[in-house]
Amino acid sequence: MGNAILFLILAVIAIGAAILMLVSKNAVHSALYLILNFAVIAVYYILLNAPFLAMVQITVYAGAIMVLFLFVIMLLGAEESSGVLGTRRGQLTTALLLGAVLIGSFVAALGQIGGSAASSSVADTTPRNLAIILFESYVFPFEVTGVLLLVAVVGLYVMSSRLVKKD
């Protein structure tokens, strides 16, 4: 499943970008770190035999979504975000503790299952095959997703039109 060295370097970059995203005071910086993180994950997708997904990741996430984020950040002038830590005493501590518990649990779980061999065959992940799977096996969820997007569009319209009215 790829080169371990490469994996580790990428992992360090991904985790570092994620942590920086988390701790940055400036929201724009956070967004940029997150883009970096997404990009690294796109690389992982390529490594994992998912080139199409990697492209989608770059265009949709790193492109469209993060642009939207940046746009809103700048629109609202919220670059200098308020405090990092939780408003309540103990919130941060508890969160870190729970994060440790979560990671510890996974580590323990990995220890239990031990090493596992990867499948020897390789799936056909061409866009064509993905489309076949999508429209054969998941046609109903696909339609539902379409409805979801439609609802989102209508919702956005309602909220923005209210803003217009209010102004």
Partner: peptide, 24 residues
């Protein structure tokens, strides 16, 4: 509290504990 962070924390608490429970 009305504080979203607190709500999220309790949600996360549940997740973490459930995971820990199933694992251990």
């Amino acid at each position: 509290t009305g504080n979203t962070g607190n709500y999220a924390l309790s949600l996360f608490l549940g997740v973490a504990l459930l995971v820990a429970f199933f694992v251990f």
